[in-house]
Amino acid sequence: MKAFSNKKNKRRYSPRRKFLKSGLVLSAAFISGSTSISSCSGDNSTKSGKKTRLLTQDGNLVEVDESNIHESHKHCIKASLKEERKGIPGRKFVMVIDLAKCRNARKCIEKCQEAHNLPPDQEWMKVYLIKDSQHTEPYWFPKPCFHCDNPPCVKVCPVDATFKRKDGIVLIDNHRCIGCKFCLTGCPYSARIYNWKEPEIPEDIKNQQYSAETSVPAMIGTVSKCDFCPDMCRIGKVPHCVSACPNGAIYYGDLNEDAVSNGNEVVRFSELMSDKGGYRYAEELGTEPCVYYLPPKERIFPVKSGFKNLSEEEKARYKNIIK
């Protein structure tokens, strides 16, 4: 029974079954067989029992019953809480950030804030300017949640509100969190954010059912953080920060497939690691992060270019590094 339901879910959430494009199919006798379908906009009500062919997202043609179209789309957006705690089967998500390509454009932060209804002062992705030692060159250091495989934040949670999924993602159940803030002190990377006041989000979003995968809506007195956007994966898209980066500095993908994508190109994770000297931040802490970094070698942008679009206030953040 369990295996069966897993299989069912796997199929349901597989990107292959997402019908995102609409069109018109011409059969051999193309005039009589033409059918118009709009699967996503949902403005046309289609009759059941009629077979129709659709172009799937990855370019395959599939034949489905029309009555399934709306149904399957509806379900692909939100998984149940139980599913959310389990994770997407067979996946192991990783992120690779190429420090050579980051110039603090802050597009990842902006897009992330927009997608998760965050106020401007809450940054799930933070960009630090790091100068490791006196004679080394500073570099921009984008830092999401590391989704550690040995997560110190999950260890200390007294109520299982934050949890580690099978696919490697660490999420938060906002309805269970008691706001003890222990996970904030537990995280050595300061990745977590506390909702100190009533979040200012539109009423209709506030009334939404909370989903751990989207981390929306935020709730006062609870914790939130970067969620690696598994909801985007369920519709076959890369996380918001990845697609927003103008320089393609952030790669995201499945370690089991040995492939990561920055939205434009797909590269083999193992090649990236071996060719560019990938590493993890603060390996000695033993937290086993799922975020890898490529050293800032052969940089595309000088460090200073990162100050270009910053307000004076934002520049003040880095005053200790560059004097």
């Binding site: 200390v156 008691i178 706001g179």
Partner: peptide, 22 residues
């Protein structure tokens, strides 16, 4: 210090023995 005192009972019903708070 706890943000959601209204959920204090979660400490009992969802207790995790691994946490120093428990």
């Amino acid at each position: 210090c706890i943000g959601r005192v209204d959920r204090l009972h979660h400490l009992l019903i969802y207790a995790r023995i691994q946490s120093p708070i428990t």
